[in-house]
């Protein structure tokens, strides 16, 4: 569903992605782990072109993201095409980023109605269903400012799902939450994984990655270092970098 091929990205002279390749199959959950600054967020943001990248190619369901052609003929696709691609890729941010001037229901309805041109009644029904699914059926008319972080993040997930995306990108979606609110959000993601949603999840929650992901990708210094099924990867890291990372993580975890 998502194919990342040899993607490199520079911020000025600083290379933050180095020839990264990975695949996310339909219905698969891929967790991306790695130390701070390793390029996880940047990689995710390249998949829906919130960041542009200078080399390589990304495809979502076969369609090229952001650029056509290769080498000297490589050119950025028109904004209209990029927007269409983005409409098929959901994203959930660490900081929720709900629209503060819209009710919960409106937050979830607005993109289907305005971008997908879905009839209002249909969008409303689907939004209500999604909000029920994330346990917020009683908050339809509330404004985001009134919700807890956990509730806001669940609305953000419903908002992304409302576009019926082919894949959802989640960037440390529990990092901004109080510890007691993390569980309710992870529960929603677990359910999505069971329902066969294709997801790319950047997370620091190793336990969670092990549990929901079919594949774990370890990044360090902008490069994809190792990838594999979580059990194998965690039990038997082949590279020293991953060993060090896991060791540090376990020590930190047990402290």
């Amino acid at each position: 569903m998502v194919a990342v091929r040899g993607v490199s990205k520079w911020f000025g002279a600083h290379q933050v992605l180095k020839d990264v390749s990975l695949d996310v199959a339909a219905g698969e959950v891929v967790a991306v782990i790695g130390p701070s600054g390793s390029g996880k967020t940047t990689l995710l943001r390249c998949v829906n072109l919130l960041e542009d990248f200078q080399q390589g190619e990304i495809r979502v369901d076969g369609e090229a993201v952001g650029y056509a052609g290769a080498g000297a003929a490589r050119r950025r696709l028109p904004e209209r095409v990029i927007a269409r691609t983005r409409s098929q890729v959901g994203m959930v941010f660490q900081s929720f980023n709900l629209f503060p001037h819209m009710t919960v229901l409106k937050n979830v309805m607005v993109a289907p109605v305005r971008v997908k041109k879905m009839p209002e009644a249909e969008a409303r029904a689907s939004a209500v269903r999604l909000l029920e699914r994330v346990g917020l059926a009683d908050k339809l008319d509330a404004y985001p400012a009134r919700l807890s972080g956990g509730q806001q993040q669940r609305v953000a997930i419903a908002r992304a799902l409302a576009m019926q995306p082919k894949v959802i990108l989640l960037d440390e979606i529990t990092s901004a939450l109080d510890p007691e609110l993390v569980g309710e959000v992870l529960a929603v993601i677990r359910q999505l994984a069971r329902d066969g949603m294709t997801m790319m999840i950047v997370t620091h929650e190793m336990q969670f990655a092990r549990e929901v992901a079919q594949k774990v990708v370890f990044m360090d210094g902008g490069a994809m270092i190792e990838q594999g099924p979580p059990r194998a990867l965690f039990a038997d890291p082949r590279t020293e970098r991953l060993q060090t990372f896991l060791k540090r993580f376990r020590e930190g975890y047990q402290l």
């Binding site: 919130l50 927007a83 691609t85 983005r86 941010f93 980023n97 629209f99 993109a111």
Partner: peptide, 11 residues
């Protein structure tokens, strides 16, 4: 961030 939230929805 608000701008990006909109763009990410395909606006």
């Amino acid at each position: 961030r608000q701008v990006e939230a909109g763009m990410a929805l395909g606006m």
